[in-house]
Design a protein around this nucleic acid. Structure first.
Lengths: 254, 254
DNA sequence: ATCGAGATTTTGGGATCCCAAAAAACCCGC
DNA sequence: GCGGGTTTTTTGGGATCCCAAAATCTCGAT
C-alpha cells in the first residue's frame, strides 16, 4: 500500500480523467479533505504532485483549477511518447547493445506471436499480449542507454493510454469472427514491426530502427483517429475503455 | 517571493548540482529542517518535488539518497531536449503556423545577428544574445501546437544547461582577439542555423526543419565533448560555469 | 442603486504534535 | 566473540493548530 498522498493523487487523477470535475472547476484543499476524509497534509502533497504532472494548475489567486484533458491532449502526448521511443530505438541501435536486452525483446516478440497464432482474443490472451508488449517497449526505453528518455516518457505516463506499451482495443467491436480476425491481423502487423525494430537494432541500423519505431508509434494515433471518425464525440473516457492497462505495477521502473 | 518549499527545493537542487552532497548521501527531513531552519512541512514538499524531478530517489527503507548528476547525465538530457525540439520544429512546419510566432522568431534572429555584428562579447551583449536565443527556442516550443513537447522539455529544464535556449560559453577562453572572433563565428553559424530553421518552417518543409533543428541541438553536445577533451576531469560545476543562464524567470512558461 | 472601505470568512502555508514503522543499539545466552 | 532477539532511538506519515493573505461579504456614503 502506498502512502495516502500517492493514493489520493491517483484517485484525483482518475477523477479528472473520468471527467468527474467540471472543466476549470476550482479545487480547494478543504473540500478534498472533506470528501476523502483525510487531513490536509496528504491533500497538499497530492495537489503538488498533480500540479507537477500538469493535471491541475494554480489558479489566479488561491487554489487550483483542474486541467481538462481532451482527446487532443492524448493524441499530442502519444505523439511525444512515440517520438521519444523512436529516439530510444535509434540510441539502442547505435549503442554497443547488450545482448540481454535484445534477447528480452525477442522473447516478447515470440510471446506475442504465439498468442496471436492461437486465433482467439479472450481476456487472458489480451492480457498476455499486453504484458509482452509492455516488456518490449520497456526494454527499448531501458536498454537505449539514455536514462532521460525513460524519465521523460514516465513524466507523461499517467495520462490514459500513455503507460509504456499500452495497447488500444475496442472490445465492443469484437463480436463477429471477422472482427476478431481483423484485430488479430492488426496485432500481427504490429508485431512484425516489433520484429523489424528488433532486427534493425540488432544490425545497428539506427535510421531504420528510429523510422520503424516512429511508424509503429504512429499506429496508436491512427487508431485514435479511427475511433474519432467512428464517433465524432469521442471522449477521453471512451479512449480509456478502449485501452488495455495492466496493473499499475507494470509501469516502467528504474 | 515563492513559497518556502519551492525556494527550498531550488537551493537543495542547486546544492546537488554543485556537488555539496556526497554521492549517494542519505538525506533526512530532520537534517534539512535543522540546516535550513524551517519546519518539516516545507521540507517534505521540497523533497517530494525533487523526487519527482529525479534529483533524489527514495532509498531502501527510509529517507532519500541524492542522485549524482554527471556530465554524462547532462549530455543525455541535452540529447533528449534536442530531440524534442526537433519534433517541435517539425510540428511547427506542418501546422498552419501562426505568422506571429514566425515574426517573433525572425526578430530573435535579427537581434542575434545585430549583436554578433558588433564584434564584441561583453556581458551585456552575451545576455542580449542569450535572451534572443531563449526567445527563439521558446517560440518554437510554444508555437509547435503540441503542449506536451514543451511540458516534457520543462520536466528536465531544471538541470544545468537544459533551460530553454541556454547557451554554452567558455568566458575564460575569451582572452585574445582571435578567441573572440572564433566565438563570434560560432555564434554566427548557430544563428544561420536559426535562419534555416525559420525558413524551413515558413516554407512548411517539416523534414528540413526537423533535421536542421537536430543539427542545431547537436552543437551543444559537441561543445560538451570539446570541453571534455580539453579537460578530462570535466565536472558538472565546470559546465554550469560555462553555461549562460538568464534569470530563472526567463524559463518557458505557459 | 453603486461604489468603496472596512469587517468577516475562507483558504493555503507553515509549525508542531503524535504515532507507527524502521533502524540502530543493546543485551543476553551460547 | 557472536548470533539472535529485545529495547531504544530515529524517522517519516498524518493530523491538528495557527496565522497571514486573499476573497467575500456588509454596510454606509453618495
Amino acid at each position: 500500500m502506498e502512502s495516502i498522498d500517492v493514493e489520493l493523487a491517483n484517485t484525483i487523477r482518475q477523477d479528472i480523467i473520468d471527467g468527474t470535475f467540471d472543466h476549470g472547476a476550482r479545487i480547494t484543499e478543504a473540500s478534498l479533505c472533506d470528501s476523502h476524509k483525510v487531513s490536509r497534509t496528504p491533500v497538499r502533497l497530492a495537489l503538488r504532485r498533480l500540479e507537477q504532472e500538469g493535471m491541475i494548475r494554480k489558479s489566479e489567486g488561491r487554489g487550483y483549477v483542474v486541467g481538462e484533458i481532451t482527446v487532443d491532449d492524448i493524441r499530442q502526448a502519444v505523439l511525444v511518447r512515440g517520438h521519444l521511443e523512436s529516439l530510444a530505438a535509434r540510441l539502442m541501435a547505435q549503442s554497443k547493445r547488450r545482448q540481454s536486452d535484445l534477447d528480452q525483446m525477442a522473447r516478447a516478440i515470440d510471446r506475442i506471436e504465439a498468442l496471436t497464432d492461437i486465433g482467439r482474443l479472450d481476456d487472458e490472451i489480451i492480457r498476455g499480449m499486453h504484458a509482452a508488449n509492455v516488456e518490449f517497449h520497456s526494454t527499448v526505453l531501458e536498454g537505449c542507454g539514455n536514462d532521460y528518455v525513460k524519465f521523460t516518457c514516465n513524466q507523461i505516463s499517467h495520462l490514459p493510454m500513455l503507460a509504456a506499451g499500452s495497447m488500444v482495443f475496442d472490445r465492443s467491436a469484437l463480436n463477429g469472427k471477422k472482427d476478431i480476425e481483423k484485430s488479430i491481423l492488426r496485432l500481427k502487423i504490429g508485431n512484425s514491426q516489433h520484429r523489424i525494430i528488433y532486427e534493425a537494432i540488432e544490425q545497428g541500423d539506427a535510421v531504420r530502427a528510429e523510422g520503424m519505431m516512429r511508424e509503429h508509434s504512429n499506429t496508436m494515433i491512427e487508431y485514435i483517429e479511427v475511433f474519432e471518425r467512428r464517433n465524432k464525440k469521442l471522449t477521453v473516457r471512451d479512449l480509456v475503455s478502449y485501452s488495455v492497462q495492466g496493473d499499475p505495477e507494470n509501469k516502467v521502473e528504474s
